[in-house]
Design a protein around this nucleic acid. Sequence first.
DNA 1: TATATTTGTCTATTGTTCTATACAACTAAA
DNA 2: TTTAGTTGTATAGAACAATAGACAAATATA
Lengths: 250, 250
Amino acid sequence: MIEAGLKPSVTRKSGVALWRQIADQMRQAIGSGALGADGRLPPEFTLSQRFGVNRHTLRSAIAALVQEGVLRAEQGRGTFVESRKRLSYPISARTRFSTGLRDQTRDRRSVLLADAVEPAGERVAEALGLAAGSNVIRLETLSEADGRPVSRATSWFDAKRFAGFARHYAKTGSITASFQKFGIDDYFRHSTLVSARHADAADLTDLKLSPGAIVLVAIAVNVDPKGKPIQFAETRFAADRVELTVSTEA
Amino acid sequence: MIEAGLKPSVTRKSGVALWRQIADQMRQAIGSGALGADGRLPPEFTLSQRFGVNRHTLRSAIAALVQEGVLRAEQGRGTFVESRKRLSYPISARTRFSTGLRDQTRDRRSVLLADAVEPAGERVAEALGLAAGSNVIRLETLSEADGRPVSRATSWFDAKRFAGFARHYAKTGSITASFQKFGIDDYFRHSTLVSARHADAADLTDLKLSPGAIVLVAIAVNVDPKGKPIQFAETRFAADRVELTVSTEA
DNA sequence: TATATTTGTCTATTGTTCTATACAACTAAA
DNA sequence: TTTAGTTGTATAGAACAATAGACAAATATA
């Protein structure tokens, strides 16, 4: 919410533990400044009464947020806000990872986790405009900003046209730079499908998230200046660290 | 995932009950056609092994989805898919609620839950280009498709320019139609900020979600043909029923 | 230094979730 | 009619979540 002042409420017997519901609400309230605006949280007992639960239950919620790096607890002093601001990731015709975040972070880095050549699945083949079963290159990559994982992507490329793409990417850590090796000086974001879901086990480890965390999923097609698809990608963003900006200027 | 023939994975000790995690994943998989594409689910025992849990745990997940109306179980026969579709909500310069979903649903409806005139908060004032503290109209609306809640929006309008907007909206259930009453025959989506979070208590009830559910949050500014902001809105979409499509054609 | 405030740890009890096993009830097909 | 396959029900124990009360340890302040 925008105006939101903390309106704490939890649901019992819902399949979601109270401490997790509370942790989720607190993370949100902290992000919007409704809680701990002065950098310090109210005492545990006060908060536990506000949420209508036992102090221990509230402590579990705090423990989870400490684990995430959102809070820091100091015995005898209190509990303090550690959190950092959410990054804003722009989606437009000229979407690129590094340039979009240029003004928001000091240090950006992309790492190649794995790569493979494999026959294209139905959906990949269709998106890239290839015959079903054609060979494609699959890249598993992780992007970090200021030392924190931001996104985890799986990309596919035509194996014939872009043979050796993984090698270039491993060296440069940049999709844009790798495309240039193949004579593509410019490319465009054709379409993006945005959804959200709970992070799966693999994303939890790669993005260093805690269970129950949310990922924003962007499924995108990039095309060369002639309009031919050159990259199909599914990117998972840690929803508590990133938001997507869509500019639709005419 | 994309190729996904369902990559089931559950996290233990996460504060989210296994049956709820499984229900969430199954709802998603059903929506994307990765599960029950033929209208029928694999037997409970098979599914329970796929998720690595006891059959009873899986049955709890199915029970939740039956309760939601996603599945229907028949003793001796099997479990069947009742409603499959996930709506795709387009975001572009000409984003409108009803037209975007025209081909995907039979029945669309928007309801005015509440309205008020109030001084603009900092963020609202800035977005609408008004002086801080100017009066604005706030609309709380709920949109449904085929009888199921799809999105829950909070919108703000300049109270001076759009006096009586709520009355028009209550009658027509359409933002577009209401704008026409004020001589605005066309308008454009200027920018959209997309994020995701756990649904808060209010959204849970309005969108009929279960605790721990995810909402896609779109914060948008609409402008008139002259480029002047006329509407600032925060819309929460049920992430298991909706995905957003961003087309960025040049 | 004393006192109040705050976070950290411990033990115990109760309710919910998950597992395990067995069997009943219903359906479809041999 | 028999058999195999499926969903539905029952019971019991193990693991986890939540409550409760008491006290220790650290910090800030009078």
